[in-house]
Write a protein that binds this DNA or RNA. Structure first.
Length: 216
DNA sequence: GGTAGGATGGGCT
DNA sequence: GCCCATCCTACCC
């Protein structure tokens, strides 16, 4: 198993550009699908997003926003392109990116990364990971590996140390659609998106996953 | 290879 | 008081 960086951070940054706010200002499912293949950077750590889930508004009972505007969900109702980080199961934090225009609370849960740079640092933060594929495979593992916490609640991901970037030379990638993980309500909605065949996803794609061809 | 159970605390009814 | 967008370990094939 290779624990070295796949590419130096400087080269990753030179080969990519920040994703603009307009990208996020549309229905969350499309944002989630198109975030697969993008680059997530925090400080010296970076990785390719390989798995996401969309969460919608009032109609989606699995979404925090379905219970309306509260102190916790405030960021979901704000402008797109910001981080929504929440604390779960008394131990873990999950990173979402706010989608849709301000007032419409859709968001995208970032579920898994293919680590590319800062892997030594990620490994220090995730001593329980035994394989590179496990470093950031899962929403709680991902935030641990990347050093993302509730302090990033509301952070603007179009500028600053936490960023989402697109590769300048976009390559077509296949995205699979399946059911969201670990929820009770609306469990059959096809709102989980993952890079087909990628070994860094948090769990295997189900038999009934549907393929959709997209450009990252 | 697989899974059952426990850790642990904030948000909301 | 209950639920929860999870993870790890122990244990069992």
């Amino acid at each position: 198993m290779i624990w070295r960086d796949a590419m130096p951070l400087g080269r990753l940054l030179a080969a990519s550009e920040v994703v603009a706010r307009e990208f996020y200002s549309r229905p969350a499912a499309g944002v989630a699908r198109d975030l697969v293949g993008k680059l997530l950077v925090h400080g010296r750590a970076a990785g390719r997003i390989v798995e996401t889930e969309a969460y919608l508004g009032a109609e989606d009972r699995a979404a925090h926003a379905s219970r309306g505007l509260t102190n916790r969900t405030r960021a979901l109702f704000g402008p797109p392109g910001h981080a929504y980080v929440y604390f779960i199961y008394g131990m873990y934090e999950c990173l979402n990116l706010v989608a849709e225009p301000a007032g419409s609370p859709g968001c995208v849960l970032i579920r898994a990364l293919e680590p590319l740079a800062g892997i030594g640092l990620m490994r220090q933060r995730r001593p329980a990971a035994r394989r590179l594929q496990d470093l950031a495979a899962g929403p709680g593992r991902l935030t641990l590996a990347m050093g993302i916490t509730r302090e990033h609640y509301g952070a603007d991901v179009t500028r600053g140390p936490l960023q989402v970037r697109r590769f300048l030379q976009d390559l077509p990638i296949e995205v699979q659609v399946s059911r969201r993980v670990g929820i009770r309500h609306c469990a059959d909605w096809p709102l989980r998106f993952s890079a087909a065949g990628n070994p860094f996803v948090s769990r295997p794609w189900p038999e009934n996953a549907v393929l959709t061809s997209e450009v990252c």
